[in-house]
Design a protein around this nucleic acid. Sequence first.
DNA 1: AAGGTAGGCGTACGCCGTACACTCGTCAAG
DNA 2: CTTGACGAGTGTACGGCGTACGCCTACCTT
Lengths: 229, 229
Amino acid sequence: MARQSETTRRVPLSRDRVLRAGVTLADEVGIESLSMRRLAQRLGVVPMALYKHVANKEELLDGMVDVVVGEVDPPVHGSNWKSAVRQRILSARETLLRHRWAYRVIESRSSPTPVVLAYMDSMIGMFRAGGFSVDLTHHVMHALGSRMLGFTRELFDDSPSPGSAPAAVPPEVAERYPHIAEMAMSRDHDRASTVGAGCDDRFEFEFALDLLLDGFDRLHRQGWTSSGH
Amino acid sequence: MARQSETTRRVPLSRDRVLRAGVTLADEVGIESLSMRRLAQRLGVVPMALYKHVANKEELLDGMVDVVVGEVDPPVHGSNWKSAVRQRILSARETLLRHRWAYRVIESRSSPTPVVLAYMDSMIGMFRAGGFSVDLTHHVMHALGSRMLGFTRELFDDSPSPGSAPAAVPPEVAERYPHIAEMAMSRDHDRASTVGAGCDDRFEFEFALDLLLDGFDRLHRQGWTSSGH
DNA sequence: AAGGTAGGCGTACGCCGTACACTCGTCAAG
DNA sequence: CTTGACGAGTGTACGGCGTACGCCTACCTT
């Protein structure tokens, strides 16, 4: 026992420990700074030690995605499909917001991991339970795309640096992009009372999500089929 | 002149030549194999020569995106907003299909380039010309997201390797992901006549696009405002 | 006590992006 | 014709990356 405290018996690595350390390291320093070497250093271990638990970096990233997706709440039962789907997707969104690097990794993966497959499977199940045909469900899943995991690619990150002034649009850009300028100025005006200028990301996400869900609903009610063009 | 043919007077590099070479090299070998060294080699030049024309690799990628986005057809005039937007987005989709690496690069960029800004500006203009309020246009643009550039992130690439058999779902995965299996089998059955099994990507894209456009239309007609919750 | 096994180690290779200092051809000014 | 500045292309070098391969050693089984 004296010996134990001297040699400081080290907790052995495990695949799970590696993946979790990867997640928290990515949370802290960003995914682009996550390297095998750095992760190993964080674990007090030599880089090659990791390779006894993950085949390569790709597999590490896959595993990290699984950890994150595993954090999403399971589907609720006993409510109608629309609110169930909505609630689950918003839960996924919360999860992805806790790990802001995750959506990039998910996007970069070429084939889904088992955990992601299970997630999709249960989401399909929600539509089927709501009475959607297999056909319609299929197209609906495509239409949701990455939104089913709680994120969408925003082409422009229009939230100004936090705490900054409403970021008056410089006249030369206002001239070159008149419509963008109009929109930016209008928003600044509207939300003058809101805490932070810029967009309410959550509002935008729900706006688009509800637009889609309502569209699904309509198609479902009118018995849409792909053959009925 | 004899001297010229001997020394094989070399075409001088230029920013434009570098960017275009980057685009075609990425088309050929994929974006992940595009390195400054490899691009330089392709141009018959030493790697560091590139840095006289682009500041760094980031700027090279930005420039390549600009080249691609510049290939998208300009908006058509004289038709209603919906078909104009639709047509333009499908044109963007064609362009992005010619350069399959481009969407990944666009996704990875943190702030839009001037060319992308101009694209978005003209797209906003199409909604405004169609009578959309600034407010609604704003949310609509968010809802479109990357779809306005003609791509969406597909979580699952369900097109089986080309030419392969309908890829019977192995029983153990059918058991684990029953809904996915159901969907896969149903599609195989439906499209037995179609050339390639799997999804018609274009159909899926248009399905979702039209769902959104119809939703926009409805909100516009009923005078939607964000304050009127 | 013997031997196998698996987890961690050390070294090394070939890539990458790019900083920095150079050469050398071109061209304008004297 | 000389000169000198300038800018495009060069060469070298550095630090970082992922990871192949072989080794060492602590432990478990027999």
